[in-house]
Amino acid sequence: MLPAFNRRRHCVINNQRGKIIVKVRKVTKSYDRGKIAVLRGVSLEVRAGEIVSLWGASGSGKSTLLHLLGGLDLPDAGEMEVCGLNPCGERDRLILRRQHLGYVFQLHNLIPDLTVEENVRIPALAVGRDADETQKRVRQLAADLGISHRLHHRIQDISGGGRQRTAICRALMNAPRLLLADEPTGSLDENTGDTVFALLQGLAEREKIAVILATHEGRFAEQCHRIVRVRNGQLSEV
């Protein structure tokens, strides 16, 4: 069970863990030419090393906020700063994706024709990283996530849990400072979901990265450092 909700709207959420790496100010986002307002002037701060859950029902705007933070989509209004860069600017967005951000999707979005190892290597390929260094990193991450024995398997030949571990490996490949995880356990059974979440937590601690986790599952939200509820297009700290 989660504690009682804090009903404050437009709250600015932070704690004292480390340097602020995500700063969102009064961001709004709507679709269908403003007819569907998804985010209504939300503000948020996340510090290095924090694991923050965006908790809310499906369609509440969690994924939209993650998309905006990752530069996958642009806000209608408001200001954002992620790792000191502006995700709305094309050049900053590319630097963010290459060096500072890792993204884990609910449906993992791996390339099915490639092997686990090839999928994990993609971010290194984008930045043209040295082959030996990449190889070491792949092996280290695969060992951490328990998929060393699957590296040469094709994606279609491994389980849902294995795919999500692969997706996490890929997200961590370029040692990001911020991991955006959009319902990473949403398509997994309970046990596998627990395992993946524990891995995510452990890696976040070990790699000292901030994690923003969108989830509708209370059991995962309450294990995070902070819970931010997303409802009616607004954020409130729980």
């Binding site: 993204y103 979005n109 993609i122 984008a126």
Partner: peptide, 9 residues
């Protein structure tokens, strides 16, 4: 799209 998210320009 995934390639773009992973940093492909």
């Amino acid at each position: 799209a995934v390639l773009r998210v992973c940093g492909f320009s």
